[in-house]
Amino acid sequence: MKPSRDQKIWMYEQMHTSRYFEECIEKIYMEGKSPAFNMAKGPIPGEMHLSNGQEPCAVGVCAHLSADDIVTSTHRPHHVAIAKGVDLNRMTAEIFGKKTGLSGGRGGHMHIFDAKVNFSCSGIIAQGMGPAVGAALSRHMQNKPGVAVAFLGEGAANQGAFHESLNLAAVWKLPVIFVVEDNAWGISVAKSASTAIEHNDARAAAYGIPGHFIPGNDPLAIFDIAGEAIERARRGEGPTLIEIETYRLAGHFMGDAEGYRPKGEKEALFARDPIPKMRQQLLDDEDWSDAQDQELVARTHARVDAAIQFARDSEYPAPEEAMEKVFV
């Protein structure tokens, strides 16, 4: 499956938005955290897991989804949330802990919910898989269109929830796609030290469903394979497992010294940064100019800057609002 010019530009724009968003968050995160690094300080407190480098996974999959389709994501969710169309102002405000945030500051960066576009994420490994299966079951039972996509990291493939969810989705033949973002590291432990096989797509065979491995962090290859899997699910032919080789250009979280990485790994990853690569592809293969490129970049920056300004300008919730929304 090949993307149209518009789809390519859409993917490219989402990648830029996501990357610039993370770069801004990275800078702001450090405000108030020096000279001594204290996670609780500054306008963005708490853990922060940046998605720099993993943008192709988000855009290659979400290019095939509408707001009506369901996505569950992980503790590293920003790129997927942006590609799924989550309200950027309210998401940013949520990350800042503001009243205007998606949950009024109750969830923060690991608990982003935007019901309007059926997006959610959560902080524990493989946790979104069961809910994705359930959402797919819901669509199946209601005879409503829509597929569910569960994003997960490669470390999640060693969780019980991974295997249980694959089996349940397969035995009930549900419209769900499991997308493994393999960034090679589970915090500091290499995939090779934690996973008995090289690529998790092989595990699909254990549940009698198709499995695909996509090398090279390539948005076009992801678009192709994910598109086929999503179409298959929409036709009612059941789930698919996809593992994508991607790169984590940041640490596991902000403050991670990344001492576990072999020398030169990071430099090699940056040399394969998917964003400049896609820019070149657009210039080479499509009717795309430097001027258009600059305009797109400026547009994404303006959008992100506005979201950050919205978050900064927003009020904090009253502390006692913490007592609300436990039940509805």
Partner: peptide, 13 residues
């Protein structure tokens, strides 16, 4: 694990 998670997902949908 799978069907409790699925209950959450179905209810949310």
């Amino acid at each position: 694990t799978a069907f409790m998670g699925a209950a959450v997902g179905a209810a949310s949908d």
